[in-house]
């Protein structure tokens, strides 16, 4: 495991370059309506794609994960904070797993 620090360096360097290049290189307003619209929709498309279906495999079984998913959807729809939504989802998973054993 002597290479661990090289792994960490590679991870950090690649991740940082990805974040830093657009912010330092793009200094003017992008005029293209297509690119502007595309960038507007990107975060919501990415976060949605990352969440489903991955969330259903994030816990010990799919039913507890589904409960966490539904609770998170309801709390988020009610405009609760990040913390409330995350904590509510975790609590739902914990309780379902407790009762399913």
């Amino acid at each position: 495991m002597n290479n661990v620090y090289i792994y960490i360096l590679v991870m950090a360097a690649v991740t940082y370059l990805i974040r830093a290049l657009p912010l330092t290189l793009i200094r003017k307003e992008i005029k293209s309506p297509f690119i502007r619209s595309f960038l507007y929709y990107v975060p919501y498309a990415t976060l949605s794609a990352m969440t489903v279906p991955a969330i259903f495999y994030a816990t010990k079984n799919i039913w507890s994960a589904a409960a966490g998913f539904v609770v998170a959807l309801i709390l988020a729809y009610m405009r609760k904070s990040l913390l409330t939504v995350a904590a509510g989802a975790c609590t739902a998973v914990f309780l379902i797993e407790l009762f399913m054993v």
Binding site: Y41, A89, V93
Partner: peptide, 28 residues
């Protein structure tokens, strides 16, 4: 059991970012 429950925390945060905005903008 606690570690398993923490597994959905990340996705809970993602949902908390997307849903309130999607509620207001049907295109999103």
């Amino acid at each position: 059991g606690l570690i398993s429950a923490l597994g959905v925390a990340l996705y809970g945060m993602f949902i908390a970012i997307v849903i309130p905005v999607a509620r207001d903008d049907k295109n999103i």
